[in-house]
Amino acid sequence: MLNIALPKGRLGDNVYSKLRASGLECPDVDDNNRKLIFESSDKTVRFFWVKPSDVSIYVERGAADIGVVGKDILVEYEPNVYEILDLGIGKCRMVVAGPKDFYDNGDRTLRVATKFSSIASNYYTSIGRDIDIIKLNGSIEIAPILGLSDVIVDIVETGTTLRENNLEIKTVIMPISARLIANKTSFKFKDDEINKIMNKIKGQINND
């Protein structure tokens, strides 16, 4: 049996619906219950939903054989896993954003608020800019408004939240999309099962 870690939220639900459409339905999922783990009717896979940033931990440690995770998490935490497929869904961008009237003239240390401290520090190191990282866990957009930081490094999908808070994109660091990852040991011992699931997801994505 293959264990699949899915991120809680829209992305995980989307991937589950693709697998359901390809025949891997779990009868209990749609019931309103408190179950955390669901088995498919044919008993070939087991799904569980976890916090998006935890998916790579479950897969790296082998508690899940495969999982779905945003490229942002993979770049930030560099888990020791195989990245076997770009699902091409959950597309967004990792950007530097700041108040519309803010201009970085480089005369002092740039204060950067972010959840992604590793991505932010690697980006600014690559352009040789000295920064002070302010690690936050949510509502990053408030930081420049309240003067906690000059800019933010965060994920932007449509840009609505930025616009509503008078912020704008200054630089795009990288495009992000959801990726299918696999535990390295599982990939050796369950390669047939993993390839089958991968092809099912690929098939559904191509149908869209």
Partner: peptide, 8 residues
């Protein structure tokens, strides 16, 4: 790799 051990 050994089945049951997550890393090499």
């Amino acid at each position: 790799f050994i089945d049951g051990i997550s890393d090499r």
